[in-house]
Each structure stands twice: as structure tokens, then as C-alpha cells.
């Protein structure tokens, strides 16, 4: 095992420790355990950061292409935003109760799918749009993951009181913050779809092919579009939207990593011709 792999598994382990500390700390209403969870999460994040850096330094391309790399980036971005939220407000510390178990499972899953990075970036990927695309996708995912965590906080706090519950922000604030993260995620996910369309147009001459990856992205984007309408147009607030955000993020995870990667992916390498080609007359 090289340094990068060791650090990768250290990150997975630390996130696991952090997830348990958060969950048990919350159940036991033990602030110290929650603080321990945050410390383990921060250490895990440092290992995660260095492992991605080491992989990048050792490869001739960028380490964000395969499904495992994509999961590693998505969870990395989620942790970055999670830690940023933690740094700006102490009140939402228990957010880790939701975010860390999800990050732990996703990164662990990524660990089982690891392959050596490609020595060459597939020609279709050699475009600046790649960056816009993956940044949009990973921030979009992170934002709706945090929104789902805030939804869970809302559901846990609503109607309850106690040491931990009283420290959480008010349900109105949790609700409004959740909406902001969904709206921001929706925007970033929109950026991912638009850049993907422009990119496909450049590489294949068609901006939209209704292929499974595209359709699933559209479906999950529309699901968040519906969230926004339920809130803004229909006036939904609170519990129902919190549940919606929680369920929607799982749909997002399945559509983003579960389905597209099992379907046929974007053309790669020396392509295959399957149609009947009648011979052409005359070479001279």
C-alpha cells in the first residue's frame, strides 16, 4: 500500500469513528462526544485532502474521473462545506449525525471500487468544461446533503426539548437554512447539467441525447425544482419539506453514482462500429 492508499483508508476510518461519536453523542446527549466527532471529522478531512493531493501528484491526469474518484471528490466537498458550516456556527454541531454516516459509507464504498488512475485522460474529457462540470456536481451534491442533514435536525428538534435540542437553532432557522442549501445545490446542479450539455455538444455535436446519465440527472434536478415550488409556490414549510429533503438526497445518491456508472458511459477510446457496412467500390 502506498501513502495515498494508507491516507485514504485513514480518512475512511476516522470518518467512521466520527460518525459513531456523533450518533452516540446525540443519543446520549453528550456534548463531549459530539466534540470528539468533530475532531475526528477534521482529522479525517485532513487525511482525505492529502490522499487526494498525493493521488493527483502521482498521476499524469486528474484524479476525478472514475466512480471511486468521483465519490471521493463528492464526499470531500461535502466535508469541506460541513466543516465550514461548523466553523461559522456552533449551534449546528449535531449536523454530523447525518452527514458523517453518509460520508463514511460513501467513501468506504469508493474504497471497494478503487482502480489505478488512467495514464491518459480520455480525449472527450480533455476540455475545460470538465472542471465546471465536476465542481458543479460535487458542490451541488454537498449542498443538498447538508440540506438533508438540516432536515433531520429539524425533525429531531421539532416538538422536543432537552440539552441538545435546546442548543440547536430554532426550527424556523433550520427550515430557512435548509432551503438556502437546496436553492444553492439546485443552482450548482444546474451548472453541472448546462456545462455537460455544452461539453457534449462540443464533443459529440449534440447537447442532449436522453441517455441514462442525462435523464437521471434531469430527474434529480427536477426533484429539487419541485422542492422549490412546494416551498415558494405552495407555501410548504417545516416537517414535510424536511422529509422531502431527506428522501430526495437518497434519490440523488442513487441517480448520481448508483445508476449512471452501471450504464454504458460516454464514448471511450477507439470506438466500435456495429452496423453493416456494404463494401465501397473502387480504389483507383
Amino acid at each position: 500500500m502506498n501513502v495515498e492508499q494508507v491516507l485514504f483508508w485513514c480518512a475512511v476510518g476516522l470518518y467512521g469513528v466520527s460518525a459513531s461519536a456523533y450518533v452516540f453523542g446525540f443519543i446520549a446527549e453528550n456534548e463531549k462526544l459530539l466534540l470528539g466527532g468533530l475532531a475526528a471529522a477534521a482529522l479525517g478531512f485532513a487525511a482525505h485532502l492529502v490522499s487526494i493531493g498525493a493521488r493527483w501528484a502521482a498521476s499524469t491526469t486528474n484524479p476525478f474521473i472514475s466512480i471511486s474518484e468521483s465519490l471521493a471528490l463528492g464526499t470531500f466537498m461535502s466535508m469541506a462545506i460541513f466543516l465550514l458550516v461548523q466553523a461559522t456556527s456552533r449551534k449546528v454541531r449535531p449536523l454530523g449525525v447525518f452527514v458523517l454516516p453518509v460520508v463514511f459509507i460513501l467513501l468506504g464504498w469508493a474504497g471497494t471500487l478503487r482502480v489505478a488512475s488512467d495514464s491518459q485522460l480520455a480525449p472527450a474529457l480533455q476540455s475545460p468544461w470538465l472542471w465546471v462540470h465536476i465542481v458543479g456536481a460535487s458542490i451541488g451534491f454537498s449542498a443538498v446533503l447538508i440540506a438533508a442533514g438540516l432536515g433531520l435536525m429539524f425533525l429531531l428538534k421539532d416538538g422536543r426539548s432537552g440539552r441538545i435540542y435546546d442548543r440547536l437553532p430554532s426550527t424556523t432557522d433550520l427550515d430557512r437554512l435548509g432551503y438556502r442549501f437546496v436553492a444553492g445545490g439546485f443552482l450548482m446542479y444546474g451548472l453541472m447539467i448546462v456545462s455537460g450539455a455544452l461539453w457534449a455538444d462540443q464533443a459529440k455535436g449534440s447537447y442532449w441525447n436522453w441517455d441514462p446519465v442525462e435523464v437521471w440527472s434531469l430527474v434529480s434536478w427536477l426533484i429539487y425544482g419541485i422542492y422549490l415550488h412546494l416551498r415558494i409556490t405552495m407555501g410548504w414549510r417545516g416537517r414535510r419539506l424536511a422529509w422531502y429533503a431527506l428522501v430526495a438526497v437518497f434519490v440523488m445518491i442513487v441517480t448520481y453514482w448508483g445508476i449512471p456508472f452501471s450504464a454504458e458511459t460516454f464514448h471511450k477510446g477507439f470506438r466500435v462500429e456495429h452496423e453493416w457496412q456494404p463494401p465501397v467500390d473502387g480504389i483507383r
Binding site: 453493416w276 465501397v280 467500390d281 473502387g282 480504389i283
Partner: peptide, 9 residues
């Protein structure tokens, strides 16, 4: 004489 295009199967 002809060029015969081949399939890649």
C-alpha cells in the same frame, strides 16, 4: 478492386 470496410466486433 475495392476497399472493403470491416466491422469491429
Amino acid at each position: 478492386a475495392a476497399m472493403v470496410p470491416l466491422q469491429s466486433l
